[in-house]
Design a protein around this nucleic acid. Structure first.
Length: 116
DNA sequence: ATGGTGACGACGG
DNA sequence: ACCGTCGCCACCA
């Protein structure tokens, strides 16, 4: 199975309301630096398959939408909102909708005095 | 096999 | 926080 097909297969498993970044898709497929290739794979989605593939659930790092998405940025945001995905400004709230745990920017901040 | 390309990503200014 | 650069990968001619 080619890398592209693996991308398509993985994206097809994304449940409603769950999103992955291009980089996460690549990492899950064993290519940590292959985010760009993932974007190309989605761009190359063959028509019959494209219609039944939730390509809109794949977003850029930090939950941003790709303006280059064949001009589908608008459509992508519409579809995401339609399935309950919330945004933090112009970005998808990955904390709530990410399909995989976010990379800890640092160890859990202050657990002892945590609270506020 | 080599070089160019793009729905990306981490960094630095 | 925004924008420009440079690096990386799989694909195709």
């Amino acid at each position: 199975m080619t890398f592209f097909e693996q991308v398509w297969a993985l994206v097809a498993t994304l449940p409603r309301g769950r999103v992955l970044t291009y980089g996460q898709v690549a990492a899950l497929l064993g290519v940590p630096r292959g985010a760009r290739a993932v974007g190309w794979a989605l761009r190359a989605l063959p028509e019959p398959l494209a219609r039944r593939t939730p390509w809109h659930r794949v977003v850029g790092a930090g939950g941003r939408l790709s303006p280059r998405a064949s001009g589908h940025e608008r459509e992508q945001r519409r579809r995401l909102r339609a399935e309950g995905v919330t945004f933090r400004g112009e970005r998808v709230d990955l904390v709530r909708h990410g399909a995989v745990p976010l990379k800890p920017l640092r160890a859990s901040p202050r657990r002892s005095a945590a609270r506020r």
